[in-house]
Simulated assay, not measured.
Amino acid sequence: MGQGPGMSGADRIPRWVWLIPAALLIIAPFDLPYGYYTVLRIVVCGFAVAVFSQTWENNAPTRPWPLAFVGIAILFNPLVPAHLDRGTWLYLDIGAAIAIVAHLLTVRAKSKNYSDQ
Score class of each variant (00 low, 15 high):
1 M>N: 11
1 M>E: 06
2 G>W: 07
2 G>T: 09
2 G>N: 11
3 Q>W: 11
4 G>P: 01
6 G>M: 06
9 G>D: 07
9 G>W: 02
11 D>W: 10
14 P>C: 11
16 W>K: 08
16 W>Y: 13
24 L>E: 02
25 L>P: 00
26 I>E: 08
27 I>K: 13
28 A>Y: 11
29 P>W: 05
29 P>G: 06
32 L>D: 10
33 P>A: 07
36 Y>V: 07
38 T>I: 08
40 L>V: 10
40 L>S: 11
43 V>C: 08
43 V>T: 14
45 C>N: 11
46 G>V: 10
50 A>W: 06
53 S>A: 14
59 N>S: 05
60 A>I: 01
62 T>C: 05
65 W>P: 00
68 A>M: 05
68 A>I: 08
71 G>W: 00
74 I>A: 09
76 F>I: 02
78 P>M: 13
79 L>N: 12
79 L>S: 13
80 V>F: 13
81 P>R: 07
84 L>I: 12
85 D>R: 09
93 D>V: 04
95 G>W: 02
98 I>C: 08
99 A>M: 05
100 I>V: 12
100 I>Q: 03
102 A>Y: 03
105 L>M: 09
105 L>K: 13
105 L>R: 15
106 T>H: 10
106 T>C: 03
107 V>F: 00
108 R>D: 06
110 K>I: 10
114 Y>Q: 14
115 S>K: 02
115 S>C: 09
116 D>M: 13
117 Q>S: 10
